[in-house]
Amino acid sequence: MSRIAPAVPPYEPAIAEALQRIMPPGMEPLALFRTMARSPRIFTKMFAGGLLDKGPLSLRQREIVIDRTTARLGAEYEWGVHVALFATKVGFGEAEIAATVTGPTDAACWSAEEQALFAMVDDLVDRRTIADGTWMALSAHFDEPQILEAIALAGYYHTISFLCRGLDLPLEAWSARFPP
């Protein structure tokens, strides 16, 4: 059980509309979203700052940053939701999924540009900065808007990871689990 009970229907109109817009048809809103709905201000701000729309990174690149960030921060809830909903869409097999959690930044299953994204996330998580070598690798593969997007994604999902872990959210029944 979450430390704050998720909101239950009927939701206030603005929240109900947002939940309907962001959730796939027939899928119950995520526990994270329903818990955030207990504070309409936080709910609104969270979605106003979301980065799941089409940005300068590909869907695969975006998911690499999100999955690695949430895995490195131990947020199995958010990692599992993203893996369940997006891994197949972005072409992740079992090796790639496992590598988002336990693999080194230079795992053979990733291209050089993907390895640069992994290194960026690991630098930010471990040192709260980006090492010069990592910056050089990022700059070799990505333009400034893409790099800014990647840093913002890592920061946003750092916050999401804190929410998931701080609230002790129970895992969604259908979501992926960290590999053993």
Rank of each mutant, 00 (worst) to 15 (best):
F47I: 10
F47T: 02
F47D: 01
F47V: 06
G49K: 06
G49N: 15
G50M: 13
G50K: 11
L51W: 05
L51S: 02
L52H: 11
D53Q: 15
D53E: 15
D53G: 15
D53T: 15
K54G: 08
K54T: 15
K54Q: 14
G55E: 03
G55T: 10
G55D: 04
G55I: 10
P56W: 00
L57C: 05
S58N: 07
S58T: 15
S58A: 09
L59P: 01
R60F: 07
R60W: 06
Q61H: 13
Q61S: 14
E63T: 06
I64G: 00
V65Y: 01
V65W: 02
V65D: 01
V65N: 00
I66P: 00
I66C: 02
D67T: 14
D67F: 09
D67G: 14
R68S: 02
R68Y: 05
T69I: 09
T70Y: 06
T70N: 10
T70F: 08
T70S: 13
T70V: 14
T70M: 09
T70G: 08
A71G: 08
A71F: 07
A71N: 04
R72K: 15
R72P: 03
R72A: 14
L73E: 02
L73H: 07
G74P: 06
G74Y: 11
G74C: 12
A75V: 13
A75I: 12
A75K: 08
E76K: 03
E76G: 04
E76S: 06
Y77S: 09
E78P: 08
W79R: 05
G80A: 13
G80C: 12
G80F: 11
V81F: 09
V81E: 02
V81Q: 13
V81T: 12
H82I: 04
H82V: 03
H82Q: 07
V83T: 11
V83M: 09
V83G: 00
L85S: 04
L85M: 11
L85P: 00
F86L: 09
F86S: 01
F86D: 01
F86W: 05
F86K: 04
T88W: 03
T88L: 05
K89P: 01
K89R: 15
K89I: 03
K89S: 10
K89H: 06
V90L: 05
V90R: 03
V90D: 02
V90N: 03
G91K: 06
G91Q: 05
G91R: 06
G91W: 07
G91C: 08
G91D: 07
F92P: 01
G93W: 12
E94T: 15
E94C: 05
A95F: 07
A95D: 13
A95R: 14
A95Q: 14
A95H: 10
E96P: 03
E96F: 04
E96V: 06
E96L: 10
E96W: 03
E96M: 12
E96R: 10
E96K: 12
I97T: 11
I97H: 01
I97C: 03
A98S: 14
A98Y: 08
A98W: 06
A98N: 11
